[in-house]
Amino acid sequence: MAVDKFPIEASHIMMFARSVGDSNPIYYDADYAEKTEPGAIIAPPTFAQSSAQFDPDYFLRPHPDKDWFGSGKNPSGLKPKKEEESSGGGGGGGGGLHAEQHFEYHRHISPGDVLTATNLPGKTWEKEGKRSGKLIFNETVTEYRDQNGELVITARGVGVRTERPVDQ
């Protein structure tokens, strides 16, 4: 996802590490981290995905002035939109799922870094799926650069929209 300013913050890293069940102290204890090889708190390998928090218009977060497709009084606040962009950042209400995710680490990021994320055009392709009908794949390449303009992470996500829910 494209983001103008993704500040890397210690408490965000701590919460993210907890959410993936990773109790490694390098993600929350600065004194411990100082004695490790990286020499500072670093972000876990998949942390860049949480740049979604800093995309003001991220479509998988409710916005106060917009309808939200999750349940309230009714199972959905609206009819799910089929055409929402599935950017590899997850699914969508209209049958979108995350198919692939790839990261290349040029440097490991730490609190204090301020990143930008820029999207490059990716491929789109189709496939017939046995368990979910026609599949439309959509690739997004995201370059994360630090405050000095250096490339720190290259991410490639593939989202897939299915014709119907995946058979279980």
């Binding site: 965000h12 919460m15 993210f16 907890r18 959410s19 993936v20 995905q49 949480s50 979604a52 928090q53 995309d55 991220y58 998988l60 977060r61 409710p62 497709f69 999750g70 349940s71 199972p75 959905s76 799910p80 950042g89 997850g90 699914g91 969508g92 209400g93 049958g95 119907r164 829910p165």
Partner: peptide
């Protein structure tokens, strides 16, 4: 917890009613 930390609030991950009745 993952939804909150990552910022991906797609209701198919946290909203049982939506996921059963709407997402299928």
């Amino acid at each position: 917890m993952y939804a909150g930390a990552s910022g991906d609030y797609n209701p198919v991950h946290t909203d049982e009613l939506f996921t059963k009745k709407v997402a299928g």
